[in-house]
Design a binder for these strands. Structure first.
Lengths: 202, 202
DNA sequence: TCAACTGTCTTGAACGATTAATCAAGTGGC
DNA sequence: GCCACTTGATTAATCGTTCAAGACAGTTGA
């Protein structure tokens, strides 16, 4: 199997779905960008939807390499890793003049009645992201109060990332992103100081 | 002007854009549902995009009557009004089997390069929603610590609503919505108890 | 009182463009 | 010769949009 052509298609589709969305990206768009002809594309993929499947699998399998590793390079403190990850999205949003938000979040809201396979891949992408944050929260140990539901808090942080990008992009104002992250920071501060007080009180 | 036909189109488009998204809704879909013919639609609207404008204007102008008033009927406490509003979205999500999220949030992420007019209408809808929450936070008076940025907190609450719906819908699991709202509730609890401690301390 | 006119809205066939997808004929390495 | 892959013209369907013709209500003028 000529993996090169297949991968070229997936990479181009990744970029195009991110920039324009799934429906607004035509097969012709993908063919033009890759210099591949339609017969080749349909040799590897039964249809457009299967290109999306491959894209979502690529995101799922590449989260460590393409998302977490770059964001966390040189950042050791687990708490700061959370904000470093959020800052990665912030940077992308600004660098693209508010065009590039979260590719998974975009697709999750664009596709209204996705096939189960697609929906589960979107969910898996969210789950992996949440798991990465949860690992940071676990690594913070007793800096967060012991009774804290770290999984729920990790889900909450994904929520904030998605909502903050949505608002910042719509208003074309990074202040919305920053203020949202600011409130999250205050929330984590409070959780930490509560844990600290608890330790000192004992 | 025969306002009846125009309004029929706007109402049908509202529903269809909400259920299927903007791009997946064809003019033919709107015509079929309204029993209006294409010539009539194009008599009132220069094009599909202007139907979207009318829909967004309808949301903007109807937020009080169609969103806030029903959610807040019988709820006087400003803090509980916040959660009553969130609960409205929760109910819709469940009643529609995870189909109906936030119509504005959906459009905000589906449309990648919206015309300025569309983008500003989306932003105006968000702003009105945030303003309504901010009024609740102001009505809470010194139950929240005086230094709190109530606007930022209101934006944060919109973020949580949007992110919580996105995740719950993708996972088809209301637990994601509930846990997100749970963390928000804990955050507000903490803000309230901090304000209380401050008052008692003085 | 009635006929003619005016402007608003309706009808529905038709248009060109774009869409995802097909397929028969190739190419080239093994 | 076999098989994986490529080429690119072609397809049927669907898209948003157009337009000429007509329906209808209200106004005008005699």
């Amino acid at each position: 199997m000529n993996a090169a052509t297949r991968q070229k298609i997936v990479m181009a589709a990744m970029e195009l779905f991110w920039a324009k969305g799934y429906q607004s990206t035509s097969i012709a768009d993908i063919l033009a960008r890759t210099q591949v002809h339609s017969g080749s594309l349909y040799h590897f993929f039964p249809g457009k939807q299967h290109v999306l499947v491959a894209v979502l699998e690529a995101y799922r399998d590449g989260i460590e390499q393409w998302l977490l590793a770059p964001a966390w390079a040189g950042v050791e403190d687990p708490r700061e890793r959370i904000f470093a990850l959020l800052n990665g999205y912030r940077t992308q949003l600004l660098a693209s003049d508010y065009a590039y938000g979260c590719p998974i979040g975009n697709l999750a809201l664009e596709l209204h009645e996705p096939d189960p396979e697609i929906r589960e891949l979107l969910a898996a992408n969210f789950s992996n992201w949440v798991a990465a944050i949860e690992r940071c929260l676990v690594a913070m140990g007793d800096r967060v109060a012991p009774g804290t539901d770290r999984r729920a808090l990790a889900e909450f942080i994904l929520t904030i990332m998605e909502g903050a990008i949505m608002q910042a992009r719509t208003h074309r104002d990074i202040g919305l992103f920053d203020r949202n992250v600011g409130v999250l920071r205050a929330h984590l501060d409070q959780l930490e100081s509560a844990a600290k007080a608890r330790v000192e009180g004992e």
